[in-house]
């Protein structure tokens, strides 16, 4: 639904269906993403507003296709690049390095 002045993330009151009550225990990588957000904020590299600004700019497609902490790590990363913590080139090289370590999260981390 499109309203003037209302962005996609402002979903209060929108029609929606049944609330799925299923829950899951957070996995290690999700807890690490959460910790990176908290620590980066504590160090002054980002804050809750900058986290949300990137999340909201991702648009509804990201909300539909990415998990909660996938969206968070995307936002944290963007914030870190903007804060000058590392460059996009450094990130690309490091991700390539991580990928080369193995096929599972356990092997790569």
């Amino acid at each position: 639904m499109e309203y003037f002045g209302k962005r996609w993330h402002d979903m209060g009151g929108d029609p929606a269906g049944y609330i799925n009550p299923d829950e899951h225990d957070f996995s290690l990588w999700e807890k690490r993403v959460d910790a990176l957000m908290v620590l980066s904020s504590a160090k002054g590299l980002m804050n809750t507003d900058s986290l949300r600004r990137v999340l909201e700019d991702m648009g509804p497609e990201a909300y539909a296709t990415m998990s909660y902490y996938e969206r968070w790590i995307a936002s944290v990363t963007q914030n870190m690049v903007e804060a000058g913590a590392f460059s996009p080139e450094e990130l690309a090289a490091k991700m390539e390095n991580v990928r080369a370590r193995g096929d599972t999260y356990g092997q790569a981390s």
Partner: peptide, 13 residues
């Protein structure tokens, strides 16, 4: 892909 990014960001920081 996103797990790879988490590891990379954590190690870079």
């Amino acid at each position: 892909y996103w797990q790879t990014m988490e590891i990379a960001v954590r190690e870079l920081l």
